[in-house]
């Protein structure tokens, strides 16, 4: 599960997919997760990182992260569609 290499993610949370021409916008926590994904972190490690930095519980995080990754997958932002 890795973000496609050619996808540009700016500091504002502006995301551009040069192969499809689509652009996206992410909020700060979404941006943080995208960056972690780019650095190659897996879901477990992202959950740990987010849990350490944000006031929330692991269930909420897990559910929201799954939803976020699912949305990003639907937007074809990941390297391999099946993983």
């Amino acid at each position: 599960m890795k973000i496609k290499k050619n996808i540009a993610v700016s500091e504002n949370g502006f995301i551009f997919n040069p192969s499809s021409g689509e652009s996206f916008s992410a909020n700060p926590s979404g941006l943080e997760i995208l960056n972690l994904l780019r650095q190659g972190h897996d879901k477990e490690s992202i959950l740990n990182h987010m849990g350490e930095n944000y006031q929330t519980d692991s269930q909420t995080l897990e559910r929201d992260l799954t939803d976020f990754i699912e949305t990003a997958r639907q937007y074809h932002l990941f390297e391999h569609e099946d993983e």
Partner: peptide
Amino acid sequence: DLAAFEQISTK
């Protein structure tokens, strides 16, 4: 430039 679109859309 995409940067201009980014500016107006995010800022």
